[in-house]
Simulated assay, not measured.
Amino acid sequence: MRRESTAPVSNEGLVWPSPSAMMAVPVVRPPPHALRHLFASEAINEGVDVYTLADLLGHEDPAFALRRYVHRVTGAVEKARKAIGRRYRAAA
């Protein structure tokens, strides 16, 4: 929904939950290493090369990053076929 006014949004009129209600809701806080693993896995899935990823993560050996963060990705084979096909078509 688009606002017509250019005035800043205020919290006037909002109802805030009580502290007891806030405590009743479980909050999941992932450990930092889980966030690091997610970052690395997503970087690999998006095509960041393993040498760059190893540098970003502070790993001396890129093979460690490969062993730890590379997983089978849904659609990876098709993505690879398309990438190779584009390369060959460009060279032709």
Rank of each mutant, 00 (worst) to 15 (best):
K82W: 06
H33L: 05
V70I: 12
H71T: 07
S10F: 13
E46L: 01
G13P: 03
V27M: 03
P31W: 13
K82H: 08
N11C: 15
H37M: 08
G75A: 03
H33P: 02
R36S: 05
T74S: 07
H33M: 06
P31Y: 15
I84C: 09
L38C: 00
F39R: 04
R89L: 15
V9A: 05
S41H: 10
T6E: 07
V48I: 06
L38V: 00
R86Q: 07
V70R: 11
S10P: 11
L56R: 02
R87L: 06
P31A: 08
R2N: 08
F64C: 11
D55S: 12
T52P: 07
V9S: 05
G13Q: 05
G75R: 03
E12C: 12
D49H: 11
M1K: 04
S18P: 15
R29I: 14
V50E: 12
H37N: 07
D49Q: 08
H33C: 04
L53C: 09
F64Y: 14
S5Q: 11
G58Y: 01
A92N: 15
R72C: 12
H71Q: 08
A24Y: 06
L38D: 00
G75K: 02
L57Y: 00
R3H: 06
E46N: 00
V9C: 08
A43R: 01
V77P: 05
E12P: 08
L53K: 07
R29W: 13
R87Q: 04
V50K: 04
V77S: 11
H59D: 01
A34F: 09
V9G: 08
A80K: 11
G47T: 01
K79P: 06
V28T: 07
V48D: 04
M22G: 04
F39L: 04
V70C: 09
L53H: 05
E46T: 00
I84F: 05
Y69W: 00
S5C: 07
A83V: 08
S10T: 15
E60W: 05
I44V: 10
P8N: 12
F64N: 13
Y51I: 10
M1Y: 03
Y51L: 15
A21K: 04
K79M: 14
E42H: 13
E78K: 14
G75H: 02
L56C: 02
N11V: 13
E46F: 01
A76G: 04
F39C: 03
P8R: 10
P17R: 09
R68L: 13
L35G: 11
H33G: 05
N45R: 09
M22S: 03
E46W: 00
P32Q: 14
V25F: 01
E78Q: 12
K82T: 09
V27L: 07
K82S: 10
G47E: 01
G47I: 01
S41K: 09
S5D: 13
F64K: 10
T74W: 09
P19V: 12
H71K: 05
T6Y: 10
D49K: 11
G58T: 00
P30T: 06
A91W: 10
A65Y: 00
D61Q: 03
V27F: 02
A91Q: 07
S20T: 08
